[in-house]
Write a protein that binds this DNA or RNA. Structure first.
Lengths: 196, 196
DNA sequence: CTTTGTCTACCTTCTAGTAGGCAGACGGTC
DNA sequence: GACCGTCTGCCTACTAGAAGGTAGACAAAG
C-alpha cells in the first residue's frame, strides 16, 4: 500500500475543513500552515496561489464524488436505495461532525464573489450531481423502484434542494437531527406503494 | 413622510448587498466606504466595530421579516396562499436579481466561523421563520387549506429547506428559473385535492 | 457650549505572494 | 563506488497592500 499522505494532500485536506467552516474568504495560508505544521512559503511551493489551491481542491472533490457514485451504482442496484445511501452519507457526516457541510454548497453560496476559475469548478460540480440524480430518477421510475410525481429532472432538483436545504437548517439550528427529520418524509414520498 | 434615508441606513443597505454576495468575510469597511461615499472612519462613528454593524443588520432583517409576516397574515387569510406569497417573494427577488439570496442563509452557512454575537442573531432569525411556518402549517391543516402528510413542524422544516435549497441551486446554476421549477411541485403537494 | 457627523492621519495586524538559500534525493557518467 | 548536476521540498526573510480600528481636529446645528 503506497497510501502515504503527501504534504500537498495534507494541505488540501486542511483547506477543505477550513472552507467547510468559513468559506473561501474565511481562511488563509497562515491557518493551513498551523494545521499542517509547515511554513506559509512552503504552501506556495505546492500551490502558487490561493486560486490554484481551491481550484484543485474542488476539482478533486468532484472527481472523488464521481468515483464514489460509480462504486455506489455498482454495489446498489435499486434506485431508491441509492438515494437513501446518498442521504445517509450526509446524515452520518453531519451527525459525527466530521464533514458537517458540503464544500461546494459553501462555495456556491459565495459564487458571485469567487474568482472565476474557482466558480467554474463549483458550477461543474453541481452539473455533475444534477445529471447523476436525474439519471437515478429516470432509471428508478422505469424500473418501478421510484414513485415520481414530476419529470425526472424536476424530481432530481427537488431532491438536491431538499438535501442541501436540510444541511443548511441542521447547521443554522445547530441540531444534526433536523437533517434526517427532513429527509425521511422526502424519501417516503419517492417510495412506491408496495401493497394496494 | 420622514422617510429620508439616513447615512446609517445607507451603510446597512450596502452591507446587506455585500453580505448577500460574499458573506461576512467577503466585504470590508473600505467596500462600504466606496458605495456610500464616506470615509472608513465615519462608518466607525455609526458602527464602532464590524460585529456591531452586522449584528444590527441581522437584527433589523429579522424585525423587518416579522413585520412583513404580520402584514401578510392580515391581508391573506388562506394558509396555502401565504406559502405561495412567501415563495413568490423569493422568486421575484431571484428573478430580477435585486436580492437574489437571503442574508441569513449566507450567514448561516458561515455560522461556525462567525463572531458569536452575530451567530446568535442568525440563529434567532431561523427560529423565527421556523416557528412562523409551523404555525401556518398548523392553521392550514385545521382549516383544510393545506394537505399535510407529516407533522406540521416537519412540513415547516421541509418547506423551509426546499426554499433555501432552491435558492442555492438557482445561484449555483446561475439559472433563476430553477427556483420556481422546484417550488411549484412542492406547493402542489401541499394543495388539498378539490374534487374527489 | 455641547453634540453630531465628518474628515485626515495614523496604527497594528493580517493578507497573499516573492526572493533566495540550503539540504537531501535522484540519475547518470567516469 | 565516487563524482556531479539537477530537482524537490522546505526554510528564513521580506514586500506591498488591505484589514479593522483609533486619535484628534473641524464645522455645523441645537
Amino acid at each position: 500500500m503506497s497510501n502515504l499522505s503527501t504534504t500537498s494532500d495534507d494541505i488540501l485536506a486542511s483547506a477543505r475543513t477550513l472552507i467547510m467552516n468559513g468559506g473561501y474568504n474565511g481562511f488563509s495560508y497562515a491557518d493551513i500552515s498551523e494545521i499542517v505544521g509547515i511554513r506559509k512559503a512552503s504552501i506556495h511551493h505546492h500551490f502558487p496561489s490561493k486560486v490554484d489551491l481551491v481550484r484543485e481542491l474542488v476539482k478533486r472533490y468532484r472527481e472523488d464524488g464521481q468515483a464514489s457514485v460509480a462504486v455506489l451504482e455498482q454495489k446498489v442496484p435499486n434506485a431508491l436505495d441509492i438515494l437513501k445511501a446518498y442521504a445517509n452519507h450526509w446524515a452520518a457526516c453531519i451527525e459525527d461532525s466530521s464533514r458537517p457541510y458540503c464544500v461546494c454548497a459553501m462555495l456556491a453560496s459565495e459564487l458571485p464573489s469567487l474568482p472565476p476559475e474557482v466558480a467554474k469548478e463549483v458550477t461543474a460540480f453541481f452539473d455533475f450531481i444534477s445529471s447523476w440524480l436525474t439519471s437515478v430518477m429516470e432509471r428508478g421510475t422505469n424500473e418501478g423502484a421510484l414513485n415520481l410525481t414530476s419529470a425526472p429532472h424536476v424530481e432530481a432538483e427537488t431532491f438536491l434542494a431538499t438535501v442541501y436545504g436540510a444541511m443548511l437548517s441542521a447547521r443554522a439550528y445547530g441540531k444534526p437531527e433536523v437533517f434526517p427529520m427532513i429527509l425521511e418524509p422526502a424519501l417516503n414520498r419517492l417510495t412506491p406503494t408496495v401493497s394496494h
